[in-house]
Design a protein around this nucleic acid. Structure first.
Lengths: 357, 357
DNA sequence: CTGAAAGCGCTTACAG
DNA sequence: CTGAAAGCGCTTACAG
């Protein structure tokens, strides 16, 4: 039976190179502080032994893991995946590693993830939600590391925040449809019955409904349908439900481009012309909406920017010797209406000319 | 200035509970071995101090991190995200945490990720590729932990493998189009010019071309276009290129449903009827293909099953005291043709009746 | 069922 | 520029 050699340690390298372990450690941590020929000897020994440093031990010693815990609702959503991607790219040069967890839009699952991750001693926590269980909030507050809530701008952030106002996005969506002259307006919102809740999506619906009311338009067609997370199929079904309730609906805002696209497919199947018979808009500026025929009008947010800005904030907070409870930062990356092919002026009002006053 | 208390350690808990640290350790690791009242005292102390165990220290001691390194081409692809999701679900009960990295289909980046992750001392490595740099292969072989290559069935696996034959999928796709009576057949394959390479996609193209040739059909329309990873837009452009070269093409196999759907949108824009004028099929059974109008014919693979089977294999390998270089396992999860609405019999041959002999 | 001792493999904090 | 000592916070491996 072949002898499985013990993994070489820093001690082995130091002996082979004829130096102390501290010198080996410095070759990895801060090569410039080691004399060139000593460094060369150490690196030769590293090479010869196939030495791979043990960062578990390193982390215990230095009390820095270079882990960032990241809790997302799901990765099966390109937008969150994009945020994770962008965050990873900012963290890479500084050699931080993401610890990714999926809450599936369950607060209890989020708490479970936090309990599972904090013992890993992440140097910071990023969480894509602003509604947490009481215990989760407490755990994060007492963790002693920076916490960044993303994908919204909470009124009362736990610590830092990077996102945008979902409520204002809903309002802006309503203003777009109102400006086109529509008056019989509906919305396809996330279900609110299950344990999984999309609070950000609900906020968009609240803003949307509020703007309708402010304009004197009924908000009775703001529906909450299906289960979270959204899917194409649920978007389709939500539209079916809306049409059953209001066959005369003129314009629809969907909680997500996923929902909107599913609804668009149902329109195709029923030969409902979009935007001729029905204006349709979504949220998130997903690639599918850009490419679909017709191309989807949407409330665009920059998922990658959220990841990037979060990464930059983190690098700022974690740089330096130790973070002396830095002041809470809040970054609003904004949003924008992206008018494409699925929304058009109300027909009875004529093309491109909303009623005057 | 408020005094920031030191994080409580197991030592603090043990003193407060009047026991040794070993007893505290056991309360977490194997509660049944601790007498009920002692356990209660310990848990009360844990609660009172807000003690959070330090798994960094635990990992160093036990030489088990309960990390699984997972290197995927990208997370911005629902299929890989689904695999990661399913893998996470299997690992969760055993309290394993995924260390996710993205190679962006670059072998060099994969090697860099491996170098960055091995010092974290993962208990196993999962890698969604079967082509590696020489150094990467060596690092994995010498890592001393199980390695699982997924999303293909390599002829020479490094260690274990869970996937399917991309080559055979290509063959099966060709057989489908041939059986429908098509003879002028093309394919939209991944670009092969950049540093990023989709070797699995290339294997599907190879199998596809081989099956065409075996049937006496020309394979000159098997195109490799654009950059990896695929996108809707590139699928669209690839179809444009194919049509420019062969306006008479009757049927097309795309390397991915993403590509196929982008091509389908171009057909919509050009009023090319699918499948009336052109049969179109993809790979991967993405949700978008299921819901699109018309629904996309595809070569279906079960991304979640790959994650699940990988997780189960890992749990088997990692269970027990130490893994004595277990025999290499290979799992083939298979694939299946999912004929939907975008493929139809060649028109000149009549409907549903391929030529006899 | 419980505990004292040793050690996991590094880095910190000095010292020279 | 380099090193000896101490320690990070746990678990292993005994021992009773």
């Amino acid at each position: 039976m072949p002898h499985r050699p013990r993994k070489p340690t820093m001690r082995d390298v130091s002996r082979l190179a004829g130096v102390s372990t501290m010198t080996v450690s410095r070759v990895f941590a801060d090569p410039a502080t080691v004399q060139a020929d000593t460094r060369a000897r150490v690196l030769a020994a590293v090479e010869q032994l196939g030495y791979v440093p043990d960062r578990v031990a390193g982390s215990l010693s230095s009390r820095r893991t270079h882990f960032i815990a990241a809790i997302l609702p799901t990765l099966t959503n390109v937008n969150f995946a994009d945020t994770a991607h962008a965050l990873t790219e900012i963290l890479r040069p500084a050699d931080y590693q993401l610890l990714i967890g999926y809450s599936m839009y369950h607060m209890d699952e989020e708490e479970r993830l936090i309990r599972a991750m904090l013992p890993r001693r992440p140097d910071a926590v990023v969480v894509a939600s602003t509604v947490h269980t009481k215990a989760a909030s407490q755990l994060l507050a007492r963790s002693g590391v920076p916490v960044v809530e993303i994908w919204d701008t909470p009124a009362q952030p736990l610590d830092h925040a990077v996102g945008f106002s979902n409520y204002e996005i809903g309002r802006a969506a309503a203003h777009h449809l109102l400006a086109l002259g529509h008056r019989r307006i509906g919305a396809l919102g996330p279900g609110r019955d299950g344990e999984a809740r999309d609070y950000r999506g609900e906020d968009r619906m609240k803003g949307f409904a509020a703007a309708l009311r402010e304009a004197g338009v009924a908000d009775d067609l703001v529906l909450h349908h299906g289960e979270v997370p959204v899917s194409f199929e649920q978007g389709r079904q939500a539209l079916v439900a809306l049409l059953a309730r209001a066959p005369d609906v003129e314009a629809v805002f969907a909680v997500s481009d996923i929902t909107a696209w599913g609804a668009l497919m149902e329109c195709h199947r029923r030969a409902i012309r979009v935007p001729g018979d029905l204006s349709l808009m979504g949220f998130g500026d997903f690639d599918i909406g850009r490419q679909s025929v017709p191309a989807l009008t949407t409330m665009g947010v920059d998922a990658r920017a959220i990841g990037r800005r979060t990464g930059e904030l983190l690098m700022r907070l974690l740089r330096g010797p130790s973070n002396p409870a830095a002041a809470s930062e809040r970054v609003d990356v904004g949003f924008r209406l992206i008018a494409r092919e699925t929304t058009a002026p109300a027909r009875r009002r004529g093309r491109r000319s909303p009623p005057r006053a």
